[in-house]
Amino acid sequence: MTNAASRDGYGSALIKLASDPKVVVVEADLGKSTKSQLFRKSHPDRTISLGISEQNMMLVSAGLATSGYKPFASTFAIFTERAFEQVRNGIARPNIPVHICGSHGGVHTGTDGSSAQSIEDLAIYRTLPNMTVIHPSDDISTEFLTIQLADMNSPSYTRTARNKTPRIYDEHSVTKLQIGKGAILTEGSDVAIIACGVMVSKALQASDELKSQGINSTVVDMHTIKPLDHELLTQLSDKCGCFVTVEDHSIIGGLGGAVAEFLVSNMPCPLERIGVNDHFGESGQGEELFIKYGMSVEHIVSSAKTVISRK
């Protein structure tokens, strides 16, 4: 299986979007890391460098968007949070189509340590009216979904990951993806595993392990956290009757929180949430941290069995 980082898909999407003369890239110094630099190299005339100033970046992007441009603004996920109120008041509230990309999301970011590991971005942006929040699982789906964002007339937040993980899609399979619709990757009726980002590949590995033990699972790549695919969750509630959510994010407020809110209000059923359990990260290899924090394939398998026993 090929390994790839979703941030590379963001960079390649910008290159493909460049044929639209209204697409502009806005940077706060980290283009080398977020991969927006690919666009800068080929289209310096439509790349706006603002230095290390995330608050400024958000409102400059809003000004560009109200003048007919389609700004794609990126920095690390954690540093977008520094400008949360700018996103709230300056972008989401007036519903201005600025597309924000936060790279290096999650503890999988690794050795930079907790200051660089955003584990709350999905939660905070999900609270904002008008915002679309996506967290694709690999480079190919990131490219495909980012290109879809350009046609939206409302703002978005995309989280990408720094490190390579197994590629989920190919050029053919990715074409079925649609913002707001979860993608079913494997089907089974014992348990539904809802995952996003770098955890989708872990969920698939867990599904294989469960199958070898006679347990059939449905795995969903829930790349869109908001709007959440309620229709799919409703179907899976009927079919499987229990859920495990898996995310490289706090278990509070992100994918697990969103799924829990929907289920408890509509069709209460057992749910186990895998994610960072209300603590900060630390330096280490991403895979090491997943084991330490209870987010490994084995933990997903174990949670699946637990949740089935609770049915």
Partner: peptide, 24 residues
């Protein structure tokens, strides 16, 4: 032309609008 109410944001917005005018 601008939704204000939180101080400090209008100059950045004006910069974006000005950059757009230049590009146009």
């Amino acid at each position: 032309d601008f939704s204000a109410g939180s101080l400090g944001m209008g100059l950045s917005f004006g910069l974006g609008v000005s950059l757009a005018a230049t590009m146009d």
